[in-house]
Design a protein around this nucleic acid. Structure first.
Lengths: 109, 109
DNA sequence: GGTCGGTATTCAGTGTTGCCAAGTACCGGT
DNA sequence: ACCGGTACTTGGCAACACTGAATACCGACC
């Protein structure tokens, strides 16, 4: 069970994390969840990832394509588009800003 | 806040930030807001800081003392206690975990 | 004496977000 | 026919930062 603290930290970063994953190559929800788990986010909830994908699609940050799967229902493959890349770049800027400020605080204590 | 992204990122980190400030020395709300502004969080909202302080007080992470001010109404001075230090340590662990994961993603893109 | 600005705290309401829990759907192997 | 793995959807909930306004205390200035 992930700590409540970490859950709250994910608010605002999870979207960026998903966009960053899509930046390397297109992917579908189930795959993204699995990759997050491999990557260390062992407690990430599937429903949450899908919710993020719905959101970024509605905001027009990704292009979507339905691709038949051999192992189950069709996959919705998400690909980062130009708008998405812009938002991702903004995410990195904000993230680095936050990390810098918090690092300063950490050193002071 | 400047960007909505940064606002969302603060969720889950602002509490840790405030605790980190209190770890250096006791402080009151107005002062903490000012320090955050000096430190780069130029758009931080006063009401938000007070809300965090109410929360950490209710959770018993701080000791509170009312101190008269020469320039206005009495100040509520917050001091981090043992429980607060524990939570702050947990915050740093979670923060470093998140930074590590996200750094990995950043390098991959 | 009355107003203005700086200090200092509180509070109701809003929107966004991740989690929980359950459900739907497709498929291969037994 | 059933079960487990794959794959997506959805309604309700709690936590959090922001908005905007209100309250209160004080010194300085006209």
């Amino acid at each position: 069970m992930g700590s409540k603290q970490l859950t709250e930290m994910l608010k605002g970063t999870l979207e960026g994390i998903v966009l960053a994953i899509l930046a390397t190559r297109p992917a579908y929800g189930y795959e993204i969840t699995a990759r997050l788990r491999d990557q260390g986010f062992t407690d990430i909830v599937e429903g949450t990832v899908y919710a993020v994908l719905v959101r970024v699609e509605q905001r027009g940050l990704v292009d979507v394509e339905k691709v038949p799967s051999e192992k189950g229902p069709p996959r919705k493959v998400y690909a980062l588009n130009a708008e998405g890349r812009t938002v991702l770049a903004e995410f990195w800027r904000n993230w680095e800003f936050l990390v810098a400020r918090i690092d300063t605080l950490h050193e002071e204590s």
